[in-house]
Amino acid sequence: MNAVSAQSGRRSLLLIFWALMALLALTTGLAYVPMGGYEVIPAYLIAVVKAALVVLFFMEVKAASRLTWVFVGAGFVWLAMLMLLTVGDYLTRGWTPSAEELTQHNAPRMAAPAPEEH
């Protein structure tokens, strides 16, 4: 293999490394900025970008076959389902009345009122 491609390959790996370090500095800096409860959004976005850089370039998935992409994607798709459905459940629990509230509310209607007698 020629020395030129070896050199450029090494350089791009170093570039990815410095990008990862810059993102680490960014996410650490942002951790000191109060954002009123929304700090998690940039923190996890940066983590996803860092993970994507590692998967695509360090793990060489960018240059891998389509079939490899399917296998890589499968793991993350199942993880996304697991997280979205679970977190969706927890975050929306207060949106509808509980079974208890429903029965309490319906109780008078369910017990048929005694007909008024004259």
Binding site: T27, A31, Y32, P34, M35, E39, I46, A47, A51
Partner: peptide, 11 residues
């Protein structure tokens, strides 16, 4: 992912 999950929670 552990870094923001455990260490960077509190501003």
């Amino acid at each position: 992912f552990l870094l923001p999950t455990l260490y960077l929670i509190k501003p």
